[in-house]
Computed example of a mutant assay.
Amino acid sequence: MTVELMATAEHAPHREEFAALYAQVQQFYAQQMRILDADADGGEARWAATFTEDAVVELPLLPAPLRARAGLTHYARAAAERRRRAGSRLHHWVGMLDVRPRPDGTLHTRCSALAHATPPGATSKILYVCVMEDVLVRAHGTWRTAHRRITRDDLA
């Protein structure tokens, strides 16, 4: 456990509760990215459903944030279509996760994220190195992303 994580865990009511919460958040991101990276049609709407209805997503190359699930679905569908035309597979890796519970029950998370593509018959190539900061809220018994801000190292 890193010093940062230990300091965060000390603020939680019990270390065991924080460890369970941390594992839930890791699982949430693993599922969210697995859905995003899936090639199956309809995955875009399932991915958007991991966000709140009124979610806001700030991406570095877009002039304005994406708003609401409909905007997220449209964006993800267009990106998936571009990948299909290019014939490459996209995968995301999330690590170095920091989870900070807030008094209102939300979570502030920050992690590193890598996006890499694998063209047919070629070696994977890292496309982006990002920092992803989220506000997660509990909705219908599961975590949902209410706000996401992504920054990229190459655009800083």
Rank of each mutant, 00 (worst) to 15 (best):
H11R: 07
K125T: 15
H92V: 00
D37N: 08
R83G: 04
T2E: 06
L97Q: 02
G42H: 03
V135E: 04
D134Q: 08
L62F: 10
L114F: 12
I35Y: 00
E53N: 14
S112W: 15
W93P: 00
L21Y: 05
C130A: 13
R102D: 12
L107D: 00
V57A: 02
M1H: 14
E16I: 06
E4I: 15
A113D: 03
F28C: 01
D37V: 06
D153G: 08
D37M: 04
W93S: 10
D154G: 13
R144H: 08
V94L: 04
V131T: 14
Y128W: 11
E133W: 08
T151I: 02
H91G: 01
A19Q: 11
T145V: 08
R83Q: 10
E133G: 03
H91R: 15
I150Q: 02
A80F: 04
A70C: 03
G141Y: 04
P60R: 03
T73E: 06
E44N: 05
A78D: 07
H74M: 08
T106R: 05
V3E: 08
R152S: 09
A113V: 13
H74V: 12
R69N: 04
Q26M: 12
A45G: 02
V135H: 05
E16H: 07
L21T: 04
A38D: 01
D134H: 07
P60L: 11
T142P: 07
R46N: 04
E53H: 15
I150K: 06
A113W: 10
L59N: 00
A19G: 06
P101W: 03
A78P: 02
D134E: 01
D37A: 06
W143V: 05
S88F: 14
R85Y: 15
Y22G: 00
L61H: 13
R83L: 14
A48W: 02
E44Y: 06
T52R: 09
A7M: 11
A40E: 07
T109W: 02
P119D: 11
Q32C: 01
T106K: 02
F51L: 11
R77E: 02
T2R: 13
F18E: 03
T118F: 01
A20E: 13
A139L: 05
S124M: 11
G105L: 12
F51H: 09
T50V: 08
R102H: 08
H11M: 11
E4Q: 15
R46V: 09
P65W: 06
R67I: 15
I35K: 00
A19H: 12
D98M: 13
R102N: 13
E81A: 14
R69C: 11
G43L: 09
S88G: 14
A30Y: 06
D134Y: 01
R46F: 09
G141C: 00
G95I: 07
L72C: 05
E17F: 07
P101T: 12
C130H: 01
D41S: 03
R110E: 12
V129N: 05
V57L: 06
D41Q: 10
Y22C: 00
Q32W: 04
L5N: 10
I35W: 02
R67C: 14
H91M: 10
E133I: 02
E10Q: 13
A64D: 09
A68M: 11
L127D: 00
L155V: 10
R148N: 00
V56F: 12
E16P: 03
C130L: 14
L36M: 09
L36C: 01
A19E: 10
L5D: 11
Q26P: 04
E58I: 07
L61A: 15
L72T: 07
